[in-house]
Design a protein around this nucleic acid. Structure first.
Lengths: 253, 253
DNA sequence: TAGTGGTCTAGACCACAAT
DNA sequence: TTGTGGTCTAGACCACTAT
């Protein structure tokens, strides 16, 4: 019927986007059945394997679920808030319609503390580049960010980069580093004097502390980011999607 | 060469496990190249499409990365700590070799507070089942857990279930509910009197608070879990894996 | 029994990287 | 030029669900 034409974009990806927008627009409601694989295959003039590739991506995003013998359905969640995944923290805010202002407190070379060196896979004491920034929204301080990265990369980053963009944007788009996994650990801590002063909080106020280790696709550490959030103005959210894989080999329950 | 035989388990899944164990055992080191798709296809007597399905799963797990024209490689991360994904929080601890003791403080029906009702998609004031538990490790209180779920399910859960298993285990294995997405939000809060007394902490001590909304594959809310961790004894970790998808349609930068 | 998704095959051509 | 992964096709058979 309505074939996919743009051959510079993979067919499965075009279909993904079509189905995504059908879902976003509400044309297909939660719990409603999608056309079958065969129908989609015929409607768009592509093979069933290609249809399956598109559907698999949407399932792993949590937009669709499938039942063998029944069909493919839209998740209830599909129309709710869509969380952003693995983008800069700042994007979370952008998506809420606020524009954070970023002020740079420090950008210099320091000798790597043990924890940083450990994460970066370098000997302690080696020089690394450290950035300290404060992010504010509507004039109120929200978070203190401390980034450590190897000087080879750190020296190629300008102050302007870091007031205009997130560190993740700079790493990917300016330095062209293909990023892979980010490991984050989240803790509740008490504000110390430095954090309290930067965030205009009181000492001993609860602070949400996030340590992020950013890696390349190859798994090589690129950066360690320590972020301190005022607990009253930020919460960290994640969506975890279950791996619905059958056929476990040896159930060690 | 060495064919895959067990036809009750999908071929791609068997290959996944073989490759996983090759990586775990250190037989294939980080950054080393894996056999090509064609070689794997011949070695195990399966088609290239099936090989690709297995490799794709390992890539999405962060164990492998692929470069067009170069090959498939093992991630550095592959040999590091493997984080558990989307299991009960208790599993995190089990994997660290500790056995938590769980004590039930309360298991009864209450009228749903607004926040809970909102998450569960029911009118406020409706009866829901509430469980309160304290989890301790080696005699020291670690966390306070408060679970709310619709009575239809809550009443089928015994005290014994909840001292022996995680709530997620009970939902999946006992109640046989296929779980899909879990949305968690993490905050730093101050301990109030109740939390402080249960966790043997001081009022105003920092507490890591996690609100989890558990859903079925269909996206229907099943449970809201509020967990309060002593900040000095727990941190929350996640691994986010970048969607390495090219061919963005309209870059709205 | 008919219809759905789940698995699998044996090809083909392309884009990219190394030589 | 060769070899790699990326995309795509046109089938086949199976497992599960509904009727």
């Amino acid at each position: 019927m309505s074939d996919l034409y743009n051959r510079s974009v993979p067919l499965y990806y075009q279909l993904e986007n079509i189905l995504r927008s059908r879902i976003d627009s509400g044309e297909v409601q939660p719990h409603h059945r999608l056309p079958t694989e065969q129908e989609l295959s015929q409607e768009y003039g592509i093979s069933r394997a290609t249809v399956r590739q598109a559907l698999a991506a949407l399932v792993s995003e949590g937009l669709l679920y499938r039942k063998q013998g029944r069909g493919t359905f839209v998740t209830e969640k599909a129309r709710q808030t869509r969380t952003v995944k693995l983008t800069g923290f700042t994007e979370d805010l952008f998506f809420q319609g606020v524009k954070p202002e970023i002020r740079i407190l420090e950008a210099r070379s320091v000798s790597a503390p043990e924890r940083i060196a450990g994460h970066l896979g370098i000997p302690p004491g080696i020089e690394v580049t450290r950035f300290k920034r404060v992010r504010s929204v509507e004039g109120t301080a929200l978070s203190l960010m401390v980034n450590h990265l190897p000087p080879a990369w750190g020296q190629r980053i300008s102050d302007r980069d870091l007031t205009q963009h997130t560190m993740l944007w700079v790493l990917e788009e300016k330095l062209r580093i293909p990023l892979g996994m980010i490991r984050q650990s989240v803790e509740a801590v008490k504000a110390d004097a430095e954090i309290a002063s930067h965030l205009k909080a009181s000492v001993f106020d609860p602070i949400l502390y996030i340590e992020s280790v950013v890696q390349t696709v190859e798994g090589r550490p690129v950066e360690v980011a320590d972020t301190y959030f005022r607990a009253d103005r930020y919460k960290y959210t994640v969506e975890l999607i279950r791996d619905r894989r059958l056929a476990k080999p040896a159930p060690a329950r």
